[in-house]
Amino acid sequence: MREVVAEFRNPVFLYSMGKDSTTMLHIARKAFYPARPPFPFLHIATTWDFQDMIVYRDLLVQALGIELRVHTNQEGLARGINPFASGSSMHAQVMSTEGLKQALDKWKFDAAFGGGRRDEEKSRAKERIFSFRTPQHTWDPRNQRPELWNLYNTRVSRGESIRVFPLSNWTEVDIWSYIRAEEIPVVPLYFSKPRPVVDRNGAIILVDDERMPVEPTEVQTKLVRFRTLGCYPLTGGMESSSRDVDDIVAEMLSSRKSERQGRLIDHDEAASMERKKREGYF
């Protein structure tokens, strides 16, 4: 992270409130201590984020005194894009991917930190720590810069940018063990509690606000937690009794399901993540 601050004019930290970017935020505080992280934090709001995430975000920003910028794809909103009518991939493409590109262009960021990890998904396993993007923000997996030792090539031309993944070599268990060891506060959605949910194609979906179209009879209250966080209508929860970080670490070590299993957009096709990344998804 210091590497990026030393070499780039205008870096930004992509903050999603999830456990990975929260862990990365903690590391940023450590890396620049006693200074504050010398870059702004960017949240791409799709307007479908879990309410708890927004509450948590605002508390954290206040507590740490960091600079937060929020961007929403207004053009997408105006077109009426939403997860129910437009479908999950269209929604992700317009509100997340396009929204991110707009924000990067608007503020002319030349480097962006992301919380991606190589263990998440097959195409992420090949991501570089310093990942080069064309001026159109696209990723060419065939033309990546080799990364040897700890020597990163940080040079870019005008308009080009770099995505930086400091947590590339971490696994999900690493993240939780670290959160436990460092006592990092995370969004309460990761911990189990009775929540109103519905079944959508086998996924447990939280009824987070009144926009969720539901039949009154189908809403059930279940002991549910979330393993990853995205847009609430697209993020499946899991039945669990893990109420704190210790429970989660224990559950993780015995789990037979992968983390992104709860993400509806990844299952469209096996190679969907790679395709999204080439288009500029984080």
């Binding site: 720590i129 947590l167 070599n169 268990v173 670290y178 060891a181």
Partner: peptide, 14 residues
């Protein structure tokens, strides 16, 4: 990314 290098992996720190 020195910080993460130093810390990773933390799964079971020993």
């Amino acid at each position: 990314m020195t910080t993460s290098e130093t810390l990773a992996p933390s799964s079971e720190l020993t």
